[in-house]
Design a binder for these strands. Structure first.
Length: 352
DNA sequence: AAATCGGACTGT
DNA sequence: ACAGTCCGATTT
């Protein structure tokens, strides 16, 4: 007996993620073509992927799934019961919103989501505090720190105008933008996460006329969406210390914040590469100064303030990392040329 | 082995 | 509809 008889399914076939992708410190995932890097482990047999970031190939935002097993098989959400997939080390790659915790909010473009834990397995009532060390919760904290994309799935439940009338809908990618511990009225501590939508291609079903204005959220994430796996590796290599000022910005959870800055910009018309030789680890201020042309680099990786054309710092580099002079030269020509000044490299050599 | 925002089945 | 019970698959 087919338990799915009578149910219309959309795109029920699942496709294994295809092509090559970057891996984290564990084994390479078989395949992935999404715009983000993907991670995963391969079992001894070499087939089972357990962690995968981004949207799997062949899956679209808005796609319907009849139950948790289908989500599992499509690599959209691997756990068959738990709401959060992930670990502290790897980060969390997906969540399911099913209204299982009071106080959650679903505003479409942003979500307030409770962590897991502290529930009586028999009564589904909260009987204990939640912990930031539970695997899924710690994973979402890691995803926040690393700006990893989180797949969001909505299940049928009351309280969300975006929830499907039955089954589950894959709702695309979100970023964790905040987390905090919260004391509930019943005296139990829970952990809460704010997630903001980062792929806008597929509109959510408009269920009310006054949708929240997503402009601010999209502005925040527009730079982070480009945070490639390589950029994350560079940040880790430098312990999140800016290569210009050597400052690391402390955040919560004993973590730090930095940004991966592409020297020759990606995309048209610049066509820079997402490669280690084209990425710097910078604090937000120097990243902005660099991207806005207030700072250029000599071939010797001296930082020049373009307002006064004076060197003010020598970039620090760590082992096995070099930025190609050609990329620095491209960036230099981009900004000095645009100001009608000579981009002749000789003018930027430090005078001995 | 424990934990997990399921799922199908029973009752009101 | 809804709530409780039992039986869970998968991952950690």
């Amino acid at each position: 007996m087919d338990f799915m008889s009578g149910v219309t399914r959309v795109g029920a076939e699942w496709f294994p993620p295809a092509a090559s992708c970057l891996s984290r410190p564990y084994k390479m995932a078989p395949a992935c073509t999404n715009s983000f890097s993907c991670n995963g482990r391969v079992s001894e047999g070499g087939v089972t992927m357990t962690r995968f970031f981004g949207t799997p190939a062949g899956v679209k935002a808005g796609q319907f799934f009849i139950d948790r097993r289908e989500l599992h098989e499509a690599f959209v959400h691997r756990p068959t019961q738990a709401g959060i997939s992930g670990t502290k080390l790897e980060g969390s790659d997906s969540i399911v919103i099913s209204g299982g915790y009071v106080g959650d909010e679903d505003n479409g473009d942003y979500i307030i989501y409770s962590g897991h834990g502290g529930k009586d397995p028999n009564s589904t009532r909260q009987i204990a505090d939640q912990s930031r060390d539970a695997p899924g919760n710690a994973g979402l904290i890691t995803s926040h720190a690393e700006a990893l994309p989180v797949r969001v799935v909505r299940g049928k439940h009351k309280g969300s105008p975006f929830a499907p009338p039955a089954g589950y809908v894959y709702s695309g990618l979100y970023l964790v933008t905040q987390w905090w511990m919260e004391m509930r009225p019943d005296g139990f501590q829970i952990i809460r996460f704010r997630l903001e939508r980062i792929d806008e291609q597929v509109p959510l079903e408009p269920q009310s006329l006054n949708l929240p204005d997503p402009e601010f959220a999209t502005t925040i994430v527009s730079r982070r969406i480009r945070d490639s796996q390589l950029a994350r590796e560079v940040k880790k290599l430098y312990d999140y210390e800016c290569q210009v000022c050597e400052q690391a910005i402390p955040t919560s959870n004993n973590a730090f914040y930095a940004e991966g800055a592409h020297v020759r910009p990606l995309g048209r018309p610049h066509l820079g590469h997402d490669a280690l030789s084209n990425i710097l680890c910078l604090c937000p201020n120097h990243h902005s100064q660099f991207d806005l042309g207030g700072l250029v680099l000599t071939d010797q990786m001296e930082a020049i303030e373009t307002r006064t054309m004076t060197p003010f710092a020598s970039l620090s580099f760590r082992k096995n990392h070099v930025v190609a002079a050609s990329n620095a030269g491209y960036h230099r020509a981009l900004w000095l040329g645009a100001r009608g000044m000579s981009s002749d490299l000789r003018l930027l050599q430090p005078t001995a």
